[in-house]
Design a protein around this nucleic acid. Structure first.
Length: 153
DNA sequence: GCCAACGTTGGC
DNA sequence: GCCAACGTTGGC
């Protein structure tokens, strides 16, 4: 069992959207590091849902891996904004995982709050210049964050 | 909207 | 294989 964090811009896809559909293919990841992390995910792994590029960026809830990595079909669709003409159908470049809604928290656990927690100082998310949209979370960090969230979840 | 940080591309 | 130029991410 592993723990992860995935970012999404709520304008594109929010936790409310996920709650409505319950399960969603997390398409559009076009970064090799992020892709490699998705390939490591196993069904049942826990994931923080993070809203980026919004007024109050932060973790908004939790979800789980519903289906392990498989090729992202949008890479082959010229109509898609995620279309990648360089990806060979015989050797797909990009994968996705399917995620399942878990819980939406009563309030956002803001990036600012996370940055203020000394226990999270070595968590990638709070470090300067971090742009990775899929990242692992240590069990210790997961529990620290869940503890804080439980105060308002 | 700005811009720092970072990843990717492509010429050499 | 280096690295400058470019594009993107994402906080502010």
């Amino acid at each position: 069992m592993a723990y992860w964090l995935m970012k999404s811009e709520p304008d594109a896809f929010s936790i409310d959207d996920l709650e409505k559909v319950d399960v969603e293919p997390w398409d559009g990841v076009r970064n090799y590091q992020a892709r490699n992390f998705m390939r490591q995910m196993q069904v049942g792994d826990h994931i923080f849902f993070y809203h980026s590029n919004t007024k109050v960026p932060g973790i908004v809830g939790v979800m789980t891996v519903a289906k392990a990595a498989y090729p992202d079909p949008t890479q082959f669709n010229p109509e898609s904004k995620y279309y990648d003409p360089k990806s060979d159908p015989d050797k797909p470049r990009w994968d996705l995982v399917e995620v399942k809604f878990g819980k939406k928290w009563q309030q956002v656990l803001s990036l600012q709050t996370l940055k203020n927690m000394p226990e999270l100082a070595n968590f990638k998310l709070v470090q300067k210049g971090n742009r990775l949209s899929v990242m692992p979370v240590s069990e210790q960090h997961w529990q620290t964050i869940m503890q804080v969230a439980s105060e308002f979840a």
